[in-house]
Amino acid sequence: MRDFWRRFRRNKGALVGLAVLAAVLCLALFAPLIDGGDPWAMVQRPFLPPFELAHTLFGTDTLGRDIGTGLVYGARVSLMIGFVSTVAALVLGVTLGAVSGYYGGWIDAALMRFTELFQTVPSFALAIVLVAIFQPSVGSIVTAIAIVSWPPVARLVRGEFLTLRQRDFVEAARLDGQSDLRIIFVELLPNAASSIVVMASLMVATAILLESSLSFMGLGDPDLMSWGFMIGAARTVLRQAWWMSVFPGLAILMTVLALNLVGEGLSDGLNTKLGGGRGNAGL
């Protein structure tokens, strides 16, 4: 663990990303404390430019709603959807990938064809169709994002398992009488964990982008104020009121960038081959 932190720290970008991410996380967690308002309430005249009034620092939108309040509550929605859909995609992807890689043979062939079915359809188009069919709601959005983002996870885990299952310690576990399920989850999965963690951090970023895109197209949950929804609502007045789309846009950019930086740091940190200072330097 100390080694991990030492390697993670060496990546300055990752530290910045971690700080930004922590700030966004605080914003989301303590939203009611930071801004007591209701993101849907009309608090001022519409089209109020930013930095003119202290309590509506980021200006107001076409209906006079506070952009600042929207940003704070939007962080909740974006992060929640990002994390939940990633967890769902991981559960699906890791399970299918692990089974496929561990058993091989016709099981592997069948599962991989199934995975390819999803990979051949453009993911954004599929997400739009899914949300449109199931009516826009948090549930359907999370499901749609999870369904379009699990195939790469399955591919990754399958690849890791294909090489890991040939190691002698797996044979030893079999001779111990351990069940397949136990070998998959207790013996093999921890060895694939580092690549999965790195991929997950990038998946959260992609999920946030996907949710924003869906909201921008008007397919967001109508009850939730999200960053993508704010940009979508402001796109018709882009030339008169830049602030309505620029601030939520910046929020998305910063969060996604931070997640990518953290992902890179995790990759450095979990990679024991990178300057671990251990071993005998290949004598």
Partner: peptide
């Protein structure tokens, strides 16, 4: 018959799970 036939492998680097403590490697069986 599982426990009664055991094996020692060639490569000492591949035959132990790198993520498991030695204690758990010996005790799991």
């Amino acid at each position: 018959y599982r426990g009664r036939i055991q094996m020692v492998f060639q490569d000492p680097y591949a035959s132990l799970n790198p993520r498991h403590r030695v204690g758990s490697a010996i005790m799991t069986g």
